[in-house]
Design a protein around this nucleic acid. Structure first.
Length: 267
DNA sequence: AATGGGACCTGCGCGC
DNA sequence: TGCGCGCAGGTCCCAT
């Protein structure tokens, strides 16, 4: 489900309700999502009694600091999301807080993962992440792009290149920059790279402002849909007219993922 | 280095 | 109505 804007929305909302709260109980309904420690009992033991000190986001990963050398790390993958408030029957994992509110980890497809670790920076899916786009400058971005021969859409989704961009926002970003997703990264000229760089930041910022896209299961922590979905220009719009030129939006497969673009506007 | 396929999962919508 | 298929916001692993 969630790309950077959705995870950022969750992060900011959770900060308001979680900081300072103590974990009273942890109920694990689906042990499959508990990856570390492998034992559910150990997982619960490490969490119960601890308080939330800080909520962080790195790429698409949510990180909760509990104390020095203790972090709860949640990777939502495709269908994970968080519902805060009352206890949910369908929750895969429930964290009961000292004010009797519940943090429900929801995940229909069970592909997400929860870990309790003493150092999250050594986790593979954190360690391998590229920079956050908001921390980069144009020159760095240019240099990185020019070295790569991957198709630009595939490169944008590569988390070791830039952290946080997924299938929706890579498509939206390329539409805004008027670049065809099949172009090789190394073939982009300076003007296109500049446009792409700005588009990424604009699209992600807009998506954060509108609290993410609820194409499928994603909801915010109060269960509300994001408002970015209705602003998407190409994602999921196969055969529908381009908002700019009316040409039907095309869907192709790239890197095993459905890829949408306007064959007229994007070159 | 880049690409393609499959695996991990469940559930939805569509065509027949 | 029922069933099979394709598809889904992510990532990892393997083979070429």
């Amino acid at each position: 489900m969630p790309e950077l804007p959705e995870v950022e929305t969750i992060k900011k909302d959770l900060e308001k309700v979680l900081l300072g709260r103590r974990i009273k109980e942890v109920i694990v309904n689906s042990k499959k999502v508990i990856k570390q420690p492998v034992s559910v009992q150990e997982f619960r033991k490490k969490l119960i009694g601890n308080s939330f000190k800080e909520v962080l986001r790195r790429g698409k990963v949510l990180i909760f600091k509990l104390k020095e050398k203790l972090y709860l790390v949640i990777h939502l993958r495709i269908s994970g999301w968080i519902l805060f408030g009352n206890q949910e029957e369908n929750a895969r994992v429930v964290f009961v807080l000292d004010n009797n509110k519940h943090l429900n980890y929801m995940d229909t497809r069970l592909l997400g993962e929860l870990r309790v670790v003493s150092d999250y920076t050594t986790l593979n899916f954190i360690k391998q992440l590229g920079p956050e786009i908001f921390d980069m400058n144009l020159e760095e971005f240019k240099n990185m792009i020019k070295k790569k021969k991957k198709k630009i859409k595939v490169l944008l989704m590569d988390q070791s290149f830039i952290a946080g961009i997924g299938n929706i926002y890579s498509a939206e970003t390329l539409f805004r920059a008027k670049i065809k997703p099949t172009r090789l990264a190394s073939s982009l000229n300076d003007k296109e790279i500049t446009s792409l760089f700005n588009s990424i930041k604009e699209v992600l910022q807009e998506a954060i402002k509108f609290r993410g896209s609820s194409v499928d299961s994603y909801r915010d922590i109060e269960g509300r849909e994001g408002k970015m979905e209705e602003r998407l220009k190409v994602y999921g719009r196969e055969n529908k007219p381009c908002f700019v030129c009316k040409t039907p939006i095309k869907r192709i497969e790239l890197g095993g993922r459905g890829t949408y673009f306007c064959p007229h506007c994007q070159r």
